[in-house]
Every structure is written in structure tokens, then in C-alpha cells.
Design a binder for these strands. Structure first.
Ligand SMILES: [Mn+2]
Ligand SMILES: [Mn+2]
Ligand SMILES: [Zn+2]
Ligand SMILES: [Zn+2]
Lengths: 141, 141
DNA sequence: CCTTTGTTTAGAATTATTCTAATTCTTACT
DNA sequence: AGTAAGAATTAGAATAATTCTAAACAAAGG
């Protein structure tokens, strides 16, 4: 759960450019907030964290920035039931564990072979671009 | 994808009673609509189908009935991203395939051994009461 | 019957998110 | 530099799914 390799501002700009998007101070700070505390915050939580660094930013902009980061594949959206969307900058394929008691979310690494095994369960004709795995329960650690 | 074994009204009543709930005509028709067409309908879709049999039912009641059926474990809720909750009367452990193009949802059976393998990936201290697996992609069948 | 408790219902409220339209910023040309 | 065009930001309104509220209705038990 240690902070992931932060990509450089230049790399961020490049990734955005690859999707036809510009870099902006808002996008940089939203991204840095996400990598700074990888606890799968909601847009509201990101907003609160970003405001302390950039008090004039608006919630709409936070939503826009998050959308931009998702679009250029620097951030993943994570959903539990109908709760607010959460944001995850961990790009390695991984599953999520949602602790029902505390609401905390943990990344769970999965061996690629297991993911392949899962995919292989699909009947022919089903082409999956993505597999999403969520554990729900209680973490006593 | 054939209609699953319909449980009898008596069994439905029993299941409801087990959770301290009564059976009602509304709950029976909501349940029968779900088993009648197992395409993972939303509450709105259930509402539309139920209305043709019971035109006076309200949307609030459909939500209440669905909640009751979920509570007594006759129906599962299924969510894709932030879309409206869908309802599934297939009680066997299974995954879902969500066709991005058509919006259709298919049940995918999984060998219990594979589910066990997934669970075994959890670090000690993580007790999962539930695993949820969703494929996203395109079904050409 | 009468009471209690559960259920249904219509409509209001809530919540997360998206949309709108005005302003500001960047970029690229002249 | 000066200007036009396109992008991004912003505040606030709108939307959509769901839940809540409070009143009416129904069933069950004494
Ligand atoms: Mn939760
Ligand atoms: Mn879809
Ligand atoms: Zn994650
Ligand atoms: Zn299903």
C-alpha cells in the first residue's frame, strides 16, 4: 500500500496529450492528490484534499479532471454497489477488497494466470475487454 | 439462460417469513416477473412489467418488494458502474457479462474451485463474505 | 370487533453526477 | 505584441435513481 511511482509532470502532460487533452494546474494537483493517498477517495474527498492546495478549484472541475485522468488511463474508476465512484491510480491489474465495516478499500494483487483462467470461462463469442473483481467482507488486519 | 426453477408461492412465503416479512400479492408478482424474464431488469423495467399484471402498483412498492426479496436471499442485486441497480433471481454463484454495445447482461457460470482460488489470493486477515466478478465487453454470439 | 404491526402508496427529499452558459486560459497565427 | 479559436474552469441549474415521509390500507391475533 506504499505510494506508487509518481509519474513526472512531463509524463502526465504527455499522457494527456496522447488523448488530445491539455495539462492544467488543476489536473496536476488532482492527480498528485490521488497518488499521494491511495485510499480510493470519492470525488468529494478529492475535492476536499485539492482545496487545501488550490482553494479556488470547483467541484465541477474536480469531476472534469478526474474524467480526463480516467480517459487517458492514468486513473481507474472503482464502484461498490451504488455508492459514489472512487478513484484509483494503481494501474496494475488488481482486485478490490471493500471492508463493509469501515468502508475502507484495499488493492488486492492477482496473478495474471488467474485472470486468464477467469477469462477462459467465457463461452465463445464473449470477448471481454475488462474483468472486474470485488471482494466484500471484513478485514481484521 | 432458460427460466430457472420457479419456487412455489408457499416457498416464497416461507422464505419471506424466515426474514420476518409477510407475503403479499405485490411481492409475488414482482418475484414472478423476475423469474419470468431473467434479463437483469432495473427497478423501472420491473415496474413496467408488473404494471401490466397489477396496474395499481406503485414504483415505491416495486422498490420495497425488490428490497424484501433481496433481504430474504431470493434475488441478488447487480450493479455496473453507476448505472441503475439490476435484479437477478439466479441464486447459483455466478459472474456477469455486461455487453457494452447492447447493454445486455448475461450470467456466466464459474467453477467453485476457481472462486476458491480467487478467495485464496486474499492476504490473511481479509475475510470475504462475497466475491463479485464482472466481465465487460462485446458478445458476438 | 379492536389493536397492533406490517405494507402500500404518492409525493417530497436526497445524493451523486452531469449539463449549461458565462468567463478565463492557452495556443497558434499574423 | 495582438488577435482569434479552441479548451478548460466555474457556479449554479438540472437530472436520475433511490430513499424517505406520512397517510391510508390490510392482515393477524386477542
Ligand atoms: Mn460500504
Ligand atoms: Mn453499459
Ligand atoms: Zn485500486
Ligand atoms: Zn445474474
Amino acid at each position: 500500500m506504499q505510494p506508487t511511482a509518481q509519474i513526472s509532470p512531463a509524463a502526465l502532460s504527455q499522457k494527456l496529450a496522447d488523448s488530445g487533452l491539455r495539462n492544467t494546474p488543476q489536473r496536476e494537483v488532482v492527480y498528485s492528490v490521488l497518488v499521494g493517498k491511495r485510499d480510493h477517495p470519492t470525488a468529494d474527498e478529492v475535492f476536499a484534499r485539492v482545496k487545501s492546495e488550490m482553494p479556488t478549484i470547483s467541484l465541477a472541475t474536480v469531476y472534469n479532471c478526474l474524467e480526463a485522468l480516467v480517459q487517458c488511463n492514468l486513473v481507474r474508476q472503482v464502484n461498490f454497489e451504488r455508492g459514489p465512484t472512487r478513484y484509483c491510480p494503481n494501474l496494475h491489474p488488481h482486485a478490490h477488497f471493500h471492508d463493509e465495516a469501515t468502508g475502507a478499500t484495499y488493492d488486492i494483487d492477482l496473478p495474471p494466470a488467474l485472470l486468464e483462467q477467469l477469462r477462459s470461462q467465457l463461452p465463445s463469442g464473449y470477448r471481454a475487454s475488462d474483468v472486474e473483481i470485488t471482494f466484500r467482507g471484513q478485514a481484521t488486519a
